[in-house]
Nucleic acid binder design. Structure first.
Lengths: 204, 204
DNA sequence: ATATAGTTTAACCATTTGGTTAATAAATTT
DNA sequence: AAATTTATTAACCAAATGGTTAAACTATAT
């Protein structure tokens, strides 16, 4: 058996596919374009990944497995809701700034094929709200935070953190800012969002 | 000149195109499928709209012109920030429940082609934040609401209202709810979101 | 009623696109 | 070093797809 050269090729294909799929989506991506970007023959794509769908799925799972731990890490950590919100917001925005296509890619493709997430759900490490739910209920009962459903709070957190990336062109147009000012807006949100949330739920 | 029959056809094409484009996107949509859904020959699409791109743009502009007034109406209305937040949240969620594909369609296609929004910007009635900005600054100065940038507040509002629709499959998976429970979550957000925002910014 | 302009269709066309194949080159095993 | 397995390529293929065309049909005007 030989490795080295082939692993390299397989890796380069995946990298190129990631690039093309994440910016153009499954339907917009062209196998030829992926091959070109990887600097190899189109037949190689099929040699390593059989067909477009499987290549796409490899990219998608890869992307998803990058996002999920970010959620889990904070959700199940041993700290107060307030700390979690702060940490998550900072971590997540920092992370996505480095992978700006990720959220949009995942959301777009999940909407195209909702069954897809069922496969992800079976994966070890798929985000689970159980611990977070118990914690929210406990803190509400204790009076640390105002009454709120854990699900709704979770959606609030996701929305405030992810939406600005997904809707970047819309936001830039509405708020009338250029690329630089947009980046600053995002930068500010690393603390802004956490404060906004905590402000709303914290009992004084 | 004759009308009636042709207006009808043109209208039916647009309606069919809306359907297909909004659920499959520009790249996923097929001209044949649109023709089939409209119950006419494929050549008619070109007769009335010249080509796929122009048909798509007709649909897109149509969709966008549905969303924009929703924003404007509330933004420039003569009422307090608190009232605006309440009204907007209720109106917007109610509206999107009736057009669930809209936000995702617009966001997806704007990401595919960000220049597209420049054309929209020239349109009369493109959402403008000036009045809202002045109002936020005034209320902050007056002390009705806590210090916050109008832009950030606006992004918060959009995010909390729109994201749950855009990320529906993701949210359903994470919170582990079925279609019915998801609908209930959304229903609850008609007041939940407004309260959450006001809670955070209102000075007591 | 006849000419004219607008509407609709079936058949066709060129290009794109995902995918295959057969032959070649490069490693690896024996 | 010969045989065998693995990697890679160029050429090819069939289906799909956006778009066109020429002819037929329908309504309106003269």
């Amino acid at each position: 058996m030989k490795r080295a050269k082939d692993e390299n090729t397989e890796e380069r294909i995946l990298e190129a596919a990631k690039n093309i799929f994440q910016s153009k989506g499954m339907n917009g991506a062209r196998m030829q374009e992926i091959a070109d970007k990887a600097g190899i023959n189109k037949a190689m794509l099929h040699y390593y990944y059989r067909n477009k769908q499987l290549l796409f799925e490899a990219v998608f799972k890869n992307a998803f497995s990058l996002l999920a731990p970010q959620l889990n890490a904070v959700l199940n950590e041993d700290s107060s809701i307030e700390e979690k919100v702060k940490k998550f917001t900072l971590n997540y925005i920092t992370f996505i700034v480095k992978h700006p296509y990720l959220p949009n890619f995942i959301i777009q493709e999940l909407n195209r094929n909702p069954d897809f997430i069922l496969q992800m759900k079976n994966n070890e490490g798929f985000p689970n709200l159980d611990i977070f739910k118990k914690q929210v209920d406990k803190e509400v009962k204790k009076g640390t935070i105002k009454p709120i459903s854990a699900e709704q709070l979770f959606i609030h957190i996701l929305a405030l953190n992810i939406f600005p990336f997904v809707a970047k062109p819309l936001i830039m147009a509405f708020t009338n800012v250029d690329e630089k000012a947009y980046k600053q807006l995002i930068e500010d949100r690393k603390t802004e969002v956490a404060n906004f949330i905590i402000n709303s739920i914290k009992n004084i």
